[in-house]
């Protein structure tokens, strides 16, 4: 049996110390397979973002093990984690996190070049992804010249342009109006179908559940209900 793309094994994570110590994830175990579109739901403070950060190699657990794309993130070196983020994972943030002094096209390119792709292929991939997310004509604009929805689509293009195995999105629609949010979700679903990239989307909004092939509900540091594996 092949290894799952993401394996979370009895992970514990707490913040703070002493009386202020807060246990965020408590013996959480979870598996995700390639090509999945998983939506992680739960109230604020239940550990959704922490889970995403652990999968993305941005944070390390206090106990337990996290494996993703064949790499043991728990014991990986900083260089390995950097390479993992550069090649295997794409991030979409709630506030888009586009670099304000780079144009839309350059922002997408910045996500590709870091994976070791040469300039011309990177440019081609960026153009093509921007066109795919409906922003082909806005590549020369700076982020401040784009609307929130457009910025989020640039962020999705940036995350996908390097063809990662895993795309992690933290409240990708949290900052958008309902209609724009719907458009962004539809786009992510389509891209999941087209590219086979695994999507893990975190949100507190139950409406997003309709977008996921699989829904994971978190509560008080653990799964709220058994998650189908």
């Amino acid at each position: 049996m092949s290894e799952p793309l993401v394996l979370i094994d009895r992970v514990r994570k707490a913040y703070g110390s002493g009386a202020a110590r807060q246990l965020v994830l408590d013996h959480l175990s979870l598996k995700m397979e390639a090509g999945e579109f998983a939506v992680v739901l739960g109230p604020s403070g239940c550990g959704k973002t922490t889970l995403l950060n652990l999968i993305g190699g941005l944070d390390t657990p206090d106990a337990g093990r996290v494996r993703a794309c064949g790499l043991d993130l728990t014991n990986a070196s900083r260089v390995e984690l950097t390479a993992y983020r550069a090649r295997s994972v794409g991030f979409v943030f709630q506030f888009y996190n586009l670099l304000p002094t780079l144009t839309a096209q350059e922002n997408v390119e910045a996500g590709v070049r870091v994976a070791g792709v040469d300039r011309e292929p990177a440019r081609e991939a960026s153009r093509s992804l921007l066109a795919r997310v409906g922003l082909g004509s806005l590549g020369d604009r700076f982020p401040s010249q784009l609307s929130g929805g457009e910025q989020q689509r640039v962020a999705i293009a940036r995350a996908l342009a390097k063809q990662p195995r895993l795309l992690l999105a933290d409240e990708p629609t949290g900052n958008l109006d309902e209609e724009t949010a719907g458009g962004v979700l539809d786009l992510m679903r389509e891209l999941n179908e087209e590219t086979g990239t695994t999507f893990v989307v975190v949100s507190h909004n139950p409406v997003l559940a309709r977008a996921g092939k699989r829904v994971v509900r978190l509560s008080h540091g653990g799964l709220a209900e058994p998650s189908p594996v």
Partner: peptide
């Protein structure tokens, strides 16, 4: 800081 964090999240390393 946020931008450097974003670069780091994108996979940019110490040298870059």
């Amino acid at each position: 800081r946020g931008e450097f964090a974003t670069l780091a999240a994108l996979g940019y390393g110490r040298r870059q």
